[in-house]
Structure formats: C-alpha cells, structure tokens
Design a binder for these strands. Structure first.
Length: 196
DNA sequence: AACAGGTTCAACCGCTCATGA
DNA sequence: TTCATGAGCGGTTGAACCTGT
C-alpha cells in the first residue's frame, strides 16, 4: 500500500549470482567500501537490487567469512545464545566471528532444531518436552545454562544474561557491536569466485 | 541405473527501525 | 513532529544436491 519497491524490478536480475556479478560487486566494494546499497548496483554496473547486493556480500563474498562446518563449541554457543535471545540471528551472528545471520539461521533450522528435539528439548522454549523426558540424550538446556553460569538459576537465567556476566567461559556481553570489521581491512584476502 | 523423497542453503520478500529533511 | 527514504532483520521459498530403495 503506497510502499515503493526497493528497486526497479523490471531491470533487475534475480536468482543465483554469476561469477561476473560477484566479481563486479567485490571489485566495487574493494574500491569504495560497503554502504549506499541502494545506489551501489548502478554505480557497480549491476542489474541487481541493492538489497540483493548487500545480502550477497554479507552472506557469501565478505573476506572474513569462515564457511565450512560448525564446531561443537559453535553449536553450544548458538544454543545458549538462542535460549537467551530467541531468533535474534544477527545478534547471535555478532558473537560468532566469521558466521552470518543467514548461515546461523539455516543451521539452526536444519541441524540444531533436530538435535534439540532428539534430546527431548523444545527448540522454541528450550524446555524439556514431556514425552521425551527420559531420552538418554536429554540434558535440559536450563540445566546447561545454569551449569555454565553459577549465578543463574533456570528461572532467572534470562535476566542474568542481560548483564555483562561471563557465563561458562562465554563472553555474553550482548551489547550490540558491529558484527564485522571495516571492509577495507584486508582487501587482498577477498575470495575469488574460484573459491566460491 | 533410475527414481523418489529428504535435506541443505542461497536468495527473495515484506516488515520494522533509524535517520535526516 | 511528521514524513520519506534507506538499511537491516527474520521468515520463507525453491533449486540443487544427497541418500535410500
């Protein structure tokens, strides 16, 4: 209703990015830095929506991305952070260097959800599901969080974590910090499309 | 070898938030 | 204070890939 489209759809490509598009985007950001996503496509000679460019850069082309499998430590950290923060993927991603919100969101939906269900834990509430209470794998996340933080009880863990408490060796300072450094920090390490 | 069903993940969509005029 | 615009976020989709039969 009166909402202007984010870009001129008639002249924008959609779907998978080509190598050439990736190269153009990387080259442009290398030269001019991130930002001004709306005007970037024109400036970079891309037939793409600015949003699409931003997403492609953040989720795939950024040089500081880790990629590859998540470690057990990352798994646990995601679960704990999700218990505290809920579906704040961007904030969770901010605590996991080299990981993106989209990647974590996908990983949660495909792997961790299932893992928690197998343990008899509701992935939404992080509470024990009744039916699976006797699962040999069950270890209520409440207990996990409480064990990680001596000052937390299952009932109070949420409130506790809003401070700068260091729980279980995990820095849970949740103040919003830029999830990523300046793009110009190491342009030479930009991935080539061959790597992608 | 061929097919069906399941899984993964890149990308899109629509909404809210932040900012500046 | 209000409105317009751009940026960012979370939910969802669908094509590609994998696995079992």
């Amino acid at each position: 209703m009166g909402r202007s489209p984010c870009c001129e759809k008639a002249h924008t490509n959609k779907g998978a990015w080509t190598k050439e598009e990736d190269q153009r985007l990387v080259a442009y950001i290398k030269a001019h830095g991130e930002g001004s996503w709306r005007s970037l496509p024109n400036a970079a000679g891309l037939q793409r929506c600015g949003k699409s460019c931003r997403l492609r850069w953040i989720n795939y082309l950024r040089p500081d991305l880790k990629r590859g499998n998540f470690t057990e430590e990352e798994d646990d950290l995601i679960i704990k952070l999700h218990q505290i923060l809920g579906n704040k993927w961007s904030v969770i991603a901010g605590r996991l260097p080299g990981r993106t919100d989209n990647e974590i969101k996908n990983y949660w939906n495909t792997h961790i959800k299932r893992k928690l269900l197998a343990r008899g834990i509701d992935p939404k509430t992080h509470r024990q599901l009744r039916a699976a209470a006797s699962s040999p794998f069950s270890r209520p996340l409440d207990q996990l969080a409480a064990a990680a933080c001596s000052s937390c009880s299952p009932e109070t863990s949420g409130a506790c974590h809003s401070s700068d408490d260091d729980c279980g060796g995990i820095d849970l300072n949740l103040s919003i910090s830029p999830p990523r450094g300046p793009p110009s920090s190491s342009p030479s390490s930009l991935p080539t499309t061959e790597e992608a």
